[in-house]
Design a protein around this nucleic acid. Structure first.
Lengths: 245, 245
DNA sequence: CAGTGGTCTAGACCACTAT
DNA sequence: TAGTGGTCTAGACCACTGT
């Protein structure tokens, strides 16, 4: 199927890294999309004119980074950014009772802002006055609010999304299905702060109560910012947990 | 030097995992201590009666976990837990000026507490009334306090440590040198909170100002808790940053 | 310089998956 | 049953380290 295309660039880089860069390029360009199966090791080795061991070295480095998954007997696939890889695994919150009831999302509203200003446009990499989509949701645990989400998205990337049902935790699945865009990288920044009057009333606390404030920047292919999200969490029920190694 | 000792246990486990387990056993027993050089690949392959490729697979898995380090032309060594593996890589703080002056540690005092109570004994896995060592330090950036550290350690594990100079960021290096103990696992839990009067005066803020509160539990071999640490950070200069992937 | 890990090859056989 | 990745071997040559 694929024509043989020898790797030529030899800038002192190890062969397996050159192969790796080539694979990353295909992933970034979307030649293989999340869920797709890659050619087999033997095919890739033939295409690139290297040995299987070299191909394996390149593939395994991407598997370790979570960009590919492999199943013996089945194949090598492009990974999806799912719950196990998302920041959700860092969040925890105390339940009011001992029952492990699943958290619910309450949808507050989606709004098209035609004259967006800082800080949203700055973090989205847009010009002042650009159009953005603002989605507001609340994470509920056993009828009690835990944290508030404000998601800002470039409207040109997600037009039409405002008519969807956001009463689920999976904003990214929705964007994947409706817009064909995938989150490939994200970053979070945590700080302490005080609740504004608006935030306090939504979270059921007092104004100026302590809150945890998180800013997330989520990128899609090409370094394009797909979402800037502010999360405001109650200090009594919401916390963030990290383990090493 | 080492006699040849073939691996016999074949419980369906891949050969390289059996080799890996054998290496871990030597590391846990202290046959090779942090900083020591391991035998070469060829020697290990000969000792265990397997090929070099298999030895490499076992060694590289331990390198990825940070338990070994390798330098081409030099050798394979037992790793030390240094800054690049510690949680310090998640911390960031705004500098008062633009100059990238290195942060300094200010030592407030070390205290032997003979009748320790909760919550410290709980997190350290000790009985109420046990003796612990409390170390208090402040992280300074350009003469301004950024965060406050309170470290609680089981005194039976670190006796004598109270006479050391703690005016460096490397508490774990000190414990490694003086007590022969190594941190192999850690976990952090972040929350928002309000400064107590004591914390406010040390950090140079007002009582009830918002702060970020972090609890760290650090374990040594055998799941034994070596340190429970509370970090209290100013909300204006201290923040926590995480990236994926 | 001798010795180390880093890279690369060209196979072999096996366990597992999907049909 | 055919095809996949998982494991393992037995070398080769190179770049780098320390003396």
């Amino acid at each position: 199927m694929s024509a043989k295309e020898n790797l030529q660039e030899d800038s002192g880089l190890p062969l397996y890294k050159t192969v790796r860069n080539r694979l990353v390029k295909e992933l970034t360009q979307g030649t293989w999309k999340p869920g797709d199966m890659l050619p087999t090791e033997v095919q890739l080795a033939g295409n690139y004119g290297v040995s299987i061991g070299t191909i394996r070295q390149a593939i395994l480095s991407l598997v370790r980074e979570g960009r590919l998954t492999r199943t013996a007997g089945s194949g090598t696939f492009v990974a999806r950014l799912d719950a196990s890889r998302s920041f959700a695994r860092f969040f925890r919150f105390r339940a009011a009772s001992g029952t492990g009831a699943a958290p619910q999302i309450r949808f507050l509203g989606a709004e098209i802002v035609k004259d967006a200003t800082v800080p949203a446009v700055t973090h989205l990499g847009l010009a002042e006055g650009a159009t953005i989509l603002l989605i507001r949701r609340v994470l509920m645990s056993e009828e009690a609010p835990v944290c508030l989400y404000r998601s800002y998205l470039p409207y040109e990337l997600v037009s039409g999304l405002e008519n969807e049902d956001f009463a689920s935790d999976h904003l990214y699945s929705l964007i994947e299905k409706r817009c064909g865009l995938f989150v490939v990288k994200a970053e979070e920044l945590l700080r302490a702060g005080l609740a504004s009057q608006d935030e306090a009333s939504i979270l059921g606390i007092q104004e100026a109560d302590p809150i945890i404030h998180i800013e997330r920047t989520a990128q899609t292919y090409g370094g394009r910012v797909l979402e800037w999200r502010e999360t405001v969490g109650r200090s009594d029920t919401f916390y963030y947990k990290i383990s090493m190694p």
